[in-house]
């Protein structure tokens, strides 16, 4: 049976309209609703389904971030994860922490925990990087199954259907392997109240990047974070004829 490691990130909730800070140093995060990155919910769900199918023996969730990341881990535990590891990132490092750092942390934890499968979301909806799975696989020097929309486990081999630009692609990978979850992989479950209560008793271990021997010194310098250009408000046209006329004027038709 496989041991599964899931990476979960605490991000500003997908439905929140974000605000850029006036000093252009970042976006406002204080007092803003946060939740688990939606792609990571899919990753957790896939891991839990593996356990339900008796493919996975144990699921460990890892979250790298501030103290509040423990709430994100609790959500994962309530969905069916067995235990959590919180890698606490010091407040001063939060702005410059990059997927390369997180990947090194995940690779170290995966090695320490003897994980056979690492699953993360394909991208976090805050930095939109889409790098962590690929880099974790590289650090572990193992296969990567990115943008997975279907995963079948056959012993020590996975058959992965990947979402690519023109359609779908199928690859087979040997374990250990790193997967990244695309939207279509599954429909994540809601944590039930009894499971939320049970999750409070599940263990969360706290470590620091230093404990894991990972250097988190900045690889980038943030020059500025600004609002995107605002589009000029358009006009409502009364009928199709006017629309066609406007498009013709613009040379579109």
């Amino acid at each position: 049976m496989a041991r599964v490691l899931v990476g979960v990130k605490r991000v500003i909730d997908y439905a929140v309209k974000i605000r850029v800070k006036p000093d252009k140093s970042g976006v406002v995060t204080d007092g803003v609703k946060h939740s688990m990155n939606p792609f990571d919910e899919i990753a957790v769900e896939e891991a839990v389904r593996m356990k339900e199918k008796k493919i996975a023996s144990e699921i460990i969730a890892v979250s790298c971030g501030p103290a509040q990341s423990q709430e994100t881990l609790r959500t994962a535990l309530a969905m069916g994860v067995d235990r959590g590891i919180h890698v606490e990132i010091a407040p001063g490092d939060l702005n410059t922490i990059q997927p390369i750092h997180i990947s090194k942390i995940l690779a170290k934890v995966a090695t320490d925990e003897k994980a056979d499968i690492v699953i993360v979301g394909k991208q976090a909806i805050d930095d939109d990087s889409n790098q962590t799975a690929q880099m974790t696989a590289a650090f572990l020097d193992c296969p990567q199954g990115t943008f997975a929309s279907k995963v079948e486990v056959n012993g020590k081999e996975l058959t992965i259907t990947r979402e690519i630009d023109g359609g779908l692609e199928t690859v087979k990978v040997n374990l250990p392997a790193v997967l990244s979850a695309d939207l279509r992989l599954n429909e994540p479950r809601y944590a039930t109240l009894p499971n939320i209560m049970k999750a409070k008793k599940k263990p969360i271990k706290k470590v620091t990047p230093k404990d894991l021997g990972v250097d988190v010194s900045p690889r980038i310098e943030i020059v500025s974070v600004e609002d995107p250009p605002v589009r000029q408000a358009g006009a409502i046209v009364p009928d199709v004829d006017t629309l066609v006329q406007k498009l013709k004027e613009k040379g579109h038709a």
Binding site: I100, S129, Q134, D165
Partner: peptide, 21 residues
């Protein structure tokens, strides 16, 4: 999809932080 799957793996092997999109 091709570039996104490939470049971060290359970057990790070179120990650099990639810049996406």
């Amino acid at each position: 999809a091709f570039g996104k799957a490939l470049l971060p793996r290359i970057a990790a092997k070179l120990d650099v932080s990639p810049v996406t999109d």
